[in-house]
């Protein structure tokens, strides 16, 4: 490959930096400003402080919302990982009906959340299911199932078929093959899928607003706070959610990189 002339390299670097700055700097504004107090609607840059975080920690509504978010997230993870893995195992190697099933699974993920949320709301009303955390968990599971299913299925497809054959060949039963060969090879994909599912559930707002009962999750709480006016707590909350989500994504990426690559490097 030939190298570009020096001038154009500098020009490209400048453009890239500018675009990156324009796109991503808004993300850092709440993080930075969360460390400064607000007085008369303006950020007071002169005295950095943790006061916003302290008042956030004393806000019982926020803490309750955080608890709710974690409960919903964990339930969603368990439900979606179990059902996503079972679906992937069932449809791996089966042609009949697979593309239709995938279409169904991916629909809620690809549709505008408001449509998914409304559809669920109408459905729950029709079958007489009271809006509660249960309906939120169902809503989130429907939403994130596609991610878990796809992650596990991809791993299954990349797994050599001879691994399963070798297990049988060495005298293992179907059950032993599942527990000792298939599942261990899927586990990192399942953990990765679970983390992504949790991150998605943690941030989900639209469907949650529509199908929740009296309890609100953290993003919904945030939404409610915004309607009452901009308070410094919001900066702190946004900063925390942002950092937590980034952390989850980094973790998920670690689990989803194939094991071989990691060990060969060592």
């Amino acid at each position: 490959m030939s190298t570009l002339p020096r001038a154009s390299t500098i020009f490209l670097a400048a453009i890239t930096t500018l675009v990156a700055a324009l796109l991503y700097s808004p993300l850092f504004v709440p993080i930075v400003s969360s460390f400064f107090p607000l007085s008369q609607g303006n950020v007071d840059w002169s005295s950095p402080t943790f006061s916003t975080y302290v008042s956030l920690a004393e806000n019982h509504d926020i803490l309750a919302a955080l608890g709710t978010t974690l409960i919903v997230g964990l339930c969603t993870v368990v439900l979606s990982v179990v059902s996503g893995t079972l679906l992937a195992l069932y449809y791996h190697g089966r042609r009949a009906g697979r593309s239709f099933l995938q279409f169904i699974i991916f629909l809620p993920f690809l549709m505008p959340p408001i449509i998914s949320g409304l559809a669920l709301l109408i459905f729950f009303r029709e079958i007489g299911l009271e809006r509660s955390l249960l309906t939120v968990v169902i809503g989130h599971t429907v939403f994130v199932l596609a991610i878990v299913y796809r992650t596990v299925l991809t791993r299954l497809q990349s797994m050599s078929r001879t691994l399963v054959e070798a297990s049988y060949d060495l005298g293992a039963t179907g059950w032993q093959t599942f527990w000792r060969v298939i599942l261990p090879n899927l586990s990192s994909a399942m953990v990765g899928g679970a983390i992504l599912a949790f991150a998605l559930s943690f941030d989900e707002t639209m469907i949650t607003i529509l199908v929740t009962g009296t309890q609100s999750t953290l993003p919904v709480r945030l939404w409610a706070m915004m309607r009452l006016g901009f308070s410094p707590d919001i900066n702190a909350l946004v900063a925390l959610i942002l950092m937590f989500t980034v952390l989850l994504c980094v973790l998920a990426a670690r689990f989803l990189i194939p094991r071989q690559v990691a060990t060969e490097r060592s």
Binding site: S160, T162, L163, E165, A166, S167, Y168, D169, L170, G171, A172, T173, V181, P184, N185, R259, Q260
Partner: peptide, 19 residues
């Protein structure tokens, strides 16, 4: 069934269990 036959196979791609 395959798991009761007293034969064992060395596969072309070895099929070693990576974990």
């Amino acid at each position: 069934p395959i798991n009761r036959r007293p034969f064992n196979t060395v596969f072309q791609d070895y099929a070693l269990f990576p974990h």
